[in-house]
Structure formats: structure tokens, C-alpha cells
């Protein structure tokens, strides 16, 4: 994150997603601003991933809306996509490019300045300086995950959407991921992530959304109590 960010807020308002004859999301609302880390928890099929896809603009939705207010005005289209970055389960990295080339490519797409230094710095931050010139295909899943987080860093986007970012990371990797996400929030960014890990949610989340069957079961503040209640809510639905 370079420089300080203006005030912004990304919001999903009563989003409904229908596939065939089933509701995947039933009027889910959520919002996040500077310093927020919103955790989406819920069993498989609860709609966590779909919600992230809708927020990112990868999925369409049948009802409700997604909006981003940035510095006092509503932004859409290219500017929306410059501010919001998405790390899905399928990583969005080219397997036949090196980690460095991937980051340089996405830096160019986002038009961020002094790309070479910025990419080198980012590779350092994600701990891939030594493996920067290996093809992504040959990296372990954990290293790929690090490179993918590097993509979020290098684009300078304010809103990070991450789908189970802890996947494939070892203990050390998780610690690194958590401090990176915390760093992003502290620098004035916003994070929305899905997670199955109470430790992760307890440590990071400032707000927790417990989802089940496409509905928000509980909307809780972060912290140990909220985390416990959220995981209880999804395990014992009312």
C-alpha cells in the first residue's frame, strides 16, 4: 500500500444470486471500509465464494446491488476494478510465467508506476525473492498462494477480496498472510475474506458474517466472543 487512502466503502446491498431454480444468495448485505477485515464463515455451499464473486464482478446477480463509494462519489467500471482486487481459489496466475513476470504483468495492467522496483519489493514482502524467476507452475501451492497475494499488493487496490487465502500455507505462511492482511487494513485498506479457520477469524476479523444457505445467520463484531458465536451459529442453526 503506498500513501494514504481516501475514505471509501464497498457494499453489497441485499444481493440475491439465483442459479437455475435455487437461491445461492438470498438478500445478503455487507459493507467494508478502511481498516475493516470482514470474515465470511459458514459451511460448504453457504454462499461465501459466490458472495465474493459477486462483489468482485465475476458473477452476475439477480437482485440487489454492489457499489463502491470512493472519496465521496460512486465509482463503477474501470475505476471500480482498479480499486477492488480479487484472489479466488483458482489464483489468477499464469502458470507458464514466472512469479516476477506475473506480478510485472498485473502491475502494468493496473498502470502503477516504477514497476520493476515495485515488483522486486513486493516479491521480497511475500517471501519469494529467491524463487521469483521460477515458473509459477513449478511452485508449491503455498508459494503460489504467496505470489497471488503479491498480485493484490502490487496492484495497489484498496479492497481485497480473498477466498480462503490460507489454503496450502504452512504455519509460518499463515502467520505471514495474517500480518500482511493486518498490514493492509492498518494502512487504510479493506479486506473481505472467507475462512474455515477459527484461529484466522479470531485473529483478523473486525466483523464476522455467518452464512448458511445463502442467508446471513449472524452479523457479529470481531474478537474471541464473536468468533465463538459465529462458529456456533453455523454448526447449530436455529
Amino acid at each position: 500500500m503506498t500513501g494514504s487512502l481516501p475514505a471509501f466503502r464497498i457494499a453489497a446491498e441485499a444481493v440475491t444470486r439465483v442459479i437455475g431454480r435455487r437461491h445461492i444468495l438470498r438478500g445478503v448485505s455487507l459493507d467494508a471500509g478502511p481498516g475493516d477485515v470482514v470474515a465470511l464463515v459458514g459451511p460448504n455451499g453457504a454462499g461465501k465464494t459466490t458472495l465474493l464473486h459477486v462483489l468482485a464482478g465475476r458473477s452476475s446477480h439477480e437482485d440487489g446491488r454492489v457499489r463502491l463509494r470512493w472519496d465521496g462519489r460512486e465509482v463503477t467500471g474501470l475505476e471500480f476494478r482498479a480499486r477492488v482486487a480479487f484472489l479466488p481459489h483458482d489464483l489468477f496466475l499464469y502458470p507458464d510465467l514466472t512469479a516476477r513476470e506475473n506480478l510485472a504483468f498485473f502491475a502494468t495492467l493496473h498502470g502503477v508506476g516504477d514497476a520493476t522496483d515495485r515488483v522486486a519489493g513486493t516479491l521480497d514482502r511475500v517471501g519469494l525473492a529467491r524463487d521469483a524467476d521460477r515458473l509459477v507452475r513449478t511452485l508449491s501451492r503455498g508459494m503460489q498462494q504467496r505470489a497471488a497475494v503479491g498480485r493484490l499488493l502490487v496492484t495497489g487496490a484498496a479492497v481485497w477480496l480473498l477466498d480462503e487465502p490460507g489454503t496450502g500455507l504452512d504455519t509460518l505462511g499463515r502467520q505471514w498472510l495474517w500480518s500482511t492482511l493486518e498490514g493492509h487494513a492498518r494502512a487504510g485498506g479493506a479486506v473481505v475474506l472467507s475462512s474455515h479457520d477459527p484461529a484466522e477469524v479470531g485473529r483478523l476479523a473486525t466483523r464476522i458474517l455467518a452464512l448458511r444457505s445463502g442467508r446471513v445467520l449472524a452479523d457479529l463484531a470481531g474478537g474471541p466472543d464473536g468468533t465463538r458465536q459465529a462458529f456456533e451459529a453455523i454448526e447449530n442453526p436455529p
Binding site: 431454480r21 437461491h23 448458511r212 442467508r215
Partner: peptide
């Protein structure tokens, strides 16, 4: 028909 199924699905608590 789709709308009817959807209405049914909306009421159900879901699987």
C-alpha cells in the same frame, strides 16, 4: 415455473 420453484426455495430454510 422457475419463479414458483424459486419462491418455494426462498421459503425453505435450505439444505
Amino acid at each position: 415455473l422457475d419463479a414458483l420453484y424459486l419462491a418455494l426455495d426462498r421459503r425453505s430454510p435450505g439444505a
